[in-house]
Write a protein that binds this DNA or RNA. Structure first.
Lengths: 191, 191
DNA sequence: TCAAAAACATTCAGGCTGTATGGAAGCGAT
DNA sequence: ATCGCTTCCATACAGCCTGAATGTTTTTGA
């Protein structure tokens, strides 16, 4: 019995299987420690399929990171829609980011392996393509923030660094309480 | 002609040669892209020497990172000795950190490859063993900071994240001005 | 229905890591 | 001084992985 599938379907299915298997293994074992034989075995295909869909291991990882970044940005957008004043909007966005980053493996993908494998520049680009502007606008709306242009971008970058560090602190079963609370009070000082 | 060297000398010399060669290649090409054959060729020894002194490639990298962290901490300590009031002390420490992180390759070693190869936990341990306490004390001395214990540690971690991000922004020939200035004004708000 | 293209499988070459084995040089005791 | 022991280092080997090249099957479109 041979099930007749369209090329588009086949393509998308194996791509999804590869991305899913790669995500599982990369988050469990790390990028460098995970081999492509392992990935394709888990995905139920061969290495030929992998190298047909992706130029190399790095390209597979890049596709994974981009999908993950979009999922995170979508979560934040969905959560911070009902904004009353700028500060609570920012706080809601921060909470949404933390909960989004608690999805298993996300910290490792986005904050550890991502910058190392893809480089900081590419990670910045990905961030800019997904949710980068949101934070800038959220900060600019705060009454205590007068920065614009480059200064505003720098401020957003610094605040984003604190978000990331707080998310990192909450990984591995650690208590995120102190970091999140402290970050919240720092944001309150900005307003 | 055979130069008679003591075992202690031989050991330290080849170790230094290996660490120096590894530092050069890791900073130029990155950890994953640098092979041990390349390292030992540059150091003028063989892979046998490398695996005699270090358990594996990771252990060599670890020794390198620890030495680098101590060098950075030493630079900061040396620069922030003449402290008048807490805020300027912190500012001087910040400036010292930025100049220390402008040594070529340091950003890549400490902020990109380090966390990926050694893991965030080990990087935290290294930071705690070198200059971790300095920042906590400097922040605690600020009049506007009332946090203690876990909260103080969380604040120091968040501020440290901003330092790192600012240093990262200044890497690759980018202009560090906006980040450094913005960070400076944020620190002033804390006091 | 049939050629062309897409999707996938298999094979191959090169390189790298870590280990095991071998040799040379220093060290301590006699 | 020399002899066993240890340290230091070099060479050889086995296993694995990556990416490219080559084959095979399935789908597509005319």
């Amino acid at each position: 019995m041979q099930e007749r599938r369209s090329n588009a379907d086949r393509r998308q299915e194996t791509r999804a299987a590869l991305l899913s298997a790669a995500r599982a293994l990369f988050t469990e074992t790390g990028y460098a420690e995970t081999g492509t034989p392992e990935i394709v075995a888990r995905a139920g295909v061969t290495r030929g399929a992998l190298y047909h869909h992706f130029a190399d291991k790095r390209a597979l990882f890049l596709a994974l990171i981009e999908a993950e970044a979009q999922a995170i940005a979508a979560s934040i957008d969905a959560a911070s829609l009902d904004a009353t004043d700028p500060l609570t909007a920012l706080r809601q966005g921060a909470r949404a980011y933390f909960t989004a980053m608690q999805v298993p493996g996300r910290v490792r993908l986005m904050l550890i392996d991502g910058p190392s494998v893809l480089g900081p520049d590419e990670m910045r680009r990905i961030d800019a393509d997904t949710g980068g502007a949101t934070l800038r606008e959220g900060l600019a709306a705060l009454p205590g923030v007068t920065a614009t242009g480059e200064d505003l971008a720098a401020l957003a970058d610094l605040v984003s660094a604190m978000f990331d560090r707080a998310a990192l602190a909450s990984a591995g079963g650690n208590d995120a309480g102190p970091h999140a609370a402290m970050l919240d009070s720092l944001l309150a000082r900005l307003a």
